[in-house]
Structures are given as C-alpha cells and as structure tokens.
Design a protein around this nucleic acid. Structure first.
Length: 579
DNA sequence: GCCGTTTTCGGCCCGACTGTTTTCAGTCG
C-alpha cells in the first residue's frame, strides 16, 4: 500500500471524528500523522515490514495508538476503525463539508436533527425554510448556504499550479496597481509551489486598508464576496476559485508572510518551537511576553528562533525545522542554475515550430544548450521519426550549430520504451545522437513488476541517459503507472541514468517526494520542459518549484552542468559495454 | 492520540470574520 493511500485513510478518519465532535486534539493527531505520512519519502509499508510497530513509532506524530491502526491497515489492507466510523456517517454527509461556510458542527446538526444526508437535500431544506428549525440558523446563514452550494462543485476541484500561478500573478498585479498599496505578494500553497492549488492567497501592505479591501472585492473577476474586513477579505472568483486578501502593517509583513504561506503543520511546529523558547509567534510578530521582538522580515523571525531561513517550498513539517535548527538545510536549486533544456519537440513531430525557433527561444532564456527530442517511430500519433528521418534531422542540426554562436543544439530523440523494455530504435542510430531520452508512451496498465522490469531494461542500454516522465501520470486525468520506484532509483543510480522531472504543468513527474528519494539514493535528475512550442519553455519554473520541494540542489541536477560536464556525464555511461 | 532538559498527566498554534449573539460559537486558514 502506498503512502498516499494510508495518508488518506487517516485523514478520512480525522474528518469523521470531527463530525462526531471528538476531542479536537485527537483529531489533530490524525491530521498531523496523515500529513507526515504524505510527505514521507520512504514507503511506510516497507518501514513497517522491516521494523514493525516500533519503527512506525519512531516517526514524529505516530505513537502507540496510531501504530496499532497502521499495523492493521498494512496487515489486512483495510481499517476496521474507519469502516466503523463510516457506518454512522455516510459519505454523502461528509461531502457537505465541501461547502464554503459549512463546517463539522453544522453538518452534524443537519444530519442528526434534520436527517439531511446530502448536498442536494441540504439545498432543498434551505429553500423550503426548514433549516430555521435549527438553533443559530437564521436568514443570512441560509442565504450563505445556498450561495455556497451554487459554487460547491467548482470550489471542490484542485487546479494545476501551472494554471493558477499565472492567473494569481495577474490578480497580484491588480492589487499592486492600487494607489495605496505599498507592497504585495503571493502566499499560501502557491508560494510553496504545490502541484495543485485550492485557493489563492495574497498579502498586502496598504496606506488605506479599507480602500484596498473594497477595491479587491469590487474587482471584475470577483463573483461573490464571502468576507470583507480591514485586514482580511475573502472572495469567490469568476473561475470558481477562492481568493483571500490579507492586509497588514508594514512592520508585520514578514511575520504575516510566514504565517500566510504555511503550511499549517509547519506553522504549528514553528509556534510550538517558539513556546518552548518562552516566545510566541503569530502573524503579528515574535513576542516575549507583551514585548514584540525587533525585526519585521521572515528572515528575522527565523533568526530569533535560532533557525536558518527555511525556503517556502519545503515548509511542510517534513524535517525542515529540525534541519534548520542544526544549520543543515541544503542550498536549493534555483531557476538561474539551469543551463539548458533537455526535452523539447520540433515540427518534425508534434512540436509547433522549427528547431531553429526553439533554439532561438532557449537562447533568449540565457541557456547554453538544448536537446531536440522528437518522438520515435512507434509513437505514430505524433508522427514519430524513423532512422532516415533522424539522419536528416542530424544533418539539419549540424548545419544549425555552425551558424549559432555560444549555443549548442544537442542531437537527440525521445525514444519509445516498447512493451518488453526494448527500445524503438537500434543502438546504431542512437550512437549517432548526443543524448537519448527513453520514455513509456504505451501499455500503461501492466503489473508493477513487469512495468518496473520494462524501465529497468531500458536503463541498461548505455545510450539512454534519461528516463522521461518516469511515472507517466497526468495530474487529475491519468494515474501514474504502477511501479517499484525504489527499484527504479537503485538501478538509475547503478547505471548512471538520470530520471526526468518533467515540468509540464499536468505532469510534474518525478514529483516532489520522488525527488527527495532520488537525492537520498544519489540519483541524478534532469529538469526539462517537454516544450512543444517556445512559450512552453516558461514551464521550467514549475519543475524548479517541484525540485525545491524535493530538497534538490544544483548538484543533483544534470542540466545545471556546463555543456562540457554534461557531455562527460553522458560519456561516462556510454563507456560501459553492458550492465 | 501524542508527547516530555520542570511534566507519564495535562497540556496541545493563533487570530480574523460572520452571524447570531448580549459575550460567543463556528468556520477558515
């Protein structure tokens, strides 16, 4: 069983406990454990297999009670506790929690006192006025419930980072354009560069907070105002997303940015650490008794607590606070470290423009090299290239390289890994290329052992320098193919093969957790865009964000190397005649 | 349910906004 599944079971339990009005700290324990497991690089099931319940209890947030629940999950594949909780509360009741402004207390009352079991039943009860039978529910509340249900479905959906970030940046631009705005930034999961985003958080400093709040809630893209105050406003946007604007004094900008960036688990950890030092942390600063400690930046906050600056992307309470205490945080990779892009398509296959235009676009980005990696013949839908067409492309690129100054186009191919792990092209033609990416584009549903063996076999070809989008997932549309990632990584490390972090917004494959595992296993990563047009080159920042979430440094990533060193890396593997 | 350089029991992050309230609970992040 994978960590995501276990994490979800614990989270589901916490939600049901909330509806049962259980002890809030018990609920928080389940939430904390769920989050800890979600961000774990190693497979929890393996940890249990190797070290039993004792090994589980070594993980922060897991004690004897939870280790027992987890042991049952691993031993039997299910949780009797969750099933028992679910007997009292059907899934359709839980779904009502997704409505803005409807929380566990209200859902419990709706279900228990009125027998309302679903969003649909809630809507008709709201319209008929039956909700007034409940204590503390009056006209305004009913009106909000109806409005909440109207945007319920859209709100529920998480969206891709690559969709939301550009949209949020426009919104940020609007906030910044207000005359009284002194400063503004994006916070929340967007700043942490999570692969999917639930809502948009913007923090601002303004000379006239009331004016700015009014301006924000009146923006044309705002569909509905949920809350509007001097310091906090919340709206639903025309695209169905939730956006919050928080306005603070300049003095508090840093501590508010920290608080507003999260994650929640990270904030709790930081605030607990502060308490242990006799301090208090809130969005208004660090306090000793009533006295506010000097300094207003995020850096100051960390410094007062005796911590290194923790980059937003790794604020998940997955070891970053402990590392910052010891001063052992890594220097995370940055966009400017990238010297080239090793996965892009041209109009020879399914790309939109000629090679020369892709090269020009990459050069404008300040890159030193790119690889043109068109598809191979098996990928017929994309017009994959056969040997003759590759020979022609080689000649074209050789010609182009003679004309380009201080830039190099690497001759390459994204070769298909066939069903049995063989490659779509013979070594003879591969050897004429500068670098080769091998990817799976067919037969996605295979037993995990078979899929693992298939990719391992491809890695054993000395011409394969990179495995493209290793899990094949399309976020929200296609599950990753099942494989033994640890085995793949061990083999990648052994053969000197890099794994790709594909930056395409719906791929981000490897994901953040995989990146951390790759780092631990000494596997090199290639952060590529898989660009099909010049504008796709800008997707690199999503790959960098994911890499940073996975604690990667410049040294872990091959396309931070100079062309010369990259060539050495490729050559090193090619020296081996067999694996 | 977790956790412990004061504690194995008694704590557990902190604050804004809304609606229904005469002092606060519920929700959200």
């Amino acid at each position: 069983m994978d960590n995501a599944t276990v994490s979800k079971i614990l989270n589901d339990i916490s939600v049901l406990l909330e509806l049962k009005d259980e002890n809030v700290f018990k609920i928080r324990s389940y939430q904390k454990a769920s989050s800890a497991i979600e961000h774990l690089a190693e497979n929890l099931s393996d940890i249990y297999k190797k070290g039993g319940r004792e090994a589980l209890e070594n993980i922060d947030g897991i004690g004897s009670g939870l280790s027992e629940r987890l042991a049952e999950i691993f031993d039997t594949g299910r949780s009797a506790y969750l099933e028992k909780l679910h007997k009292d509360i059907p899934e359709s009741v839980v779904e009502m929690l997704g409505i803005q402004g409807v929380g566990p207390k209200l859902v419990a009352k709706l279900y228990k006192d009125l027998g309302i079991k679903s969003v649909k039943e809630l809507l008709s009860a709201a319209r008929s006025g039956r909700l007034k039978e409940l204590d503390g529910v009056r006209d305004k509340k009913i009106e909000n419930i109806i409005k909440g249900i109207e945007s319920f479905e859209k709100l529920d959906k998480k969206r891709l980072l690559g969709e939301v970030l550009p949209y949020a940046e426009k919104l940020l631009g609007s906030v910044r354009s207000h005359k009284k705005t002194l400063d503004a930034m994006i916070c929340g999961s967007l700043r942490r560069m999570k692969e999917t985003i639930g809502d948009i958080d913007i923090l601002a400093v303004s000379e006239a907070p009331g004016d700015l709040a009014g301006y924000f809630t009146d923006l044309p893209q705002v569909k509905r105002v949920i809350a509007k105050g001097e310091t906090k406003s919340s709206v639903i946007l025309e695209n169905g997303m939730n956006a919050d604007l928080r306005i603070v004094d300049e003095l508090n900008f840093g501590s508010a940015a920290h608080y507003f960036t999260g994650s929640q688990q990270h904030n709790i950890k930081i605030r607990k650490l502060a308490i242990s030092k006799g301090l208090k942390v809130s969005e208004y600063g660090v306090f000793k008794g009533r006295k506010r400690m000097p300094g207003g930046t995020e850096g100051d906050l960390f410094e007062i607590l005796g911590l290194q600056f923790i980059p937003p992307e790794i604020r998940e309470d997955s070891g970053e606070v402990e590392a910052a205490m010891k001063g052992s945080l890594p220097q995370l990779i940055e966009l400017k470290d990238i010297k080239g892009d090793l996965h892009m398509h041209s109009d020879h296959t399914d790309g939109e423009v000629p090679i020369e235009q892709m090269a020009a676009a990459a050069k404008r980005k300040g890159y030193e090299y790119i690889a043109i990696t068109d598809h191979s013949k098996s990928t017929t839908v994309a017009g994959g290239l056969d040997e003759k067409e590759i020979e022609r492309q080689i000649k074209e690129i050789d010609g182009l390289n003679k004309r380009l100054k201080d830039f190099r186009v690497l001759k390459s191919i994204e070769v298909d890994i066939l069903k049995d792990g063989a490659l779509d092209l013979e070594d003879g033609i591969l050897s004429k290329l500068d670098i080769v990416i091998a990817s799976v584009h067919s037969h996605f549903s295979m037993p995990p052992e078979k899929m693992t063996e298939r990719i391992v076999k491809a890695m054993r070809n000395r011409f394969v320098s990179i495995i493209g989008h290793p899990t094949g997932r399309l976020i929200g549309r296609r599950a990753p193919y099942e494989l033994d990632m640890e085995k793949i990584m061990d083999e990648a490390s052994r053969t000197g093969t890099a794994l790709e972090l594909n930056s395409y917004p719906d791929r981000l494959d490897l994901n953040d957790i995989h990146c951390r595992l790759a780092k631990a296993k000494g596997v090199k990563v290639a952060i590529n865009t898989d660009s099909h047009s010049p504008s796709d080159l800008s997707h690199m920042r999503y790959g960098i964000g994911t890499a940073r979430r996975g604690w990667l440094t410049k040294k872990n990533v091959i396309n931070t190397l100079s062309l010369n060193d990259l060539t050495l890396f490729i050559g090193e593997k090619r020296k081996n005649k067999s694996f």
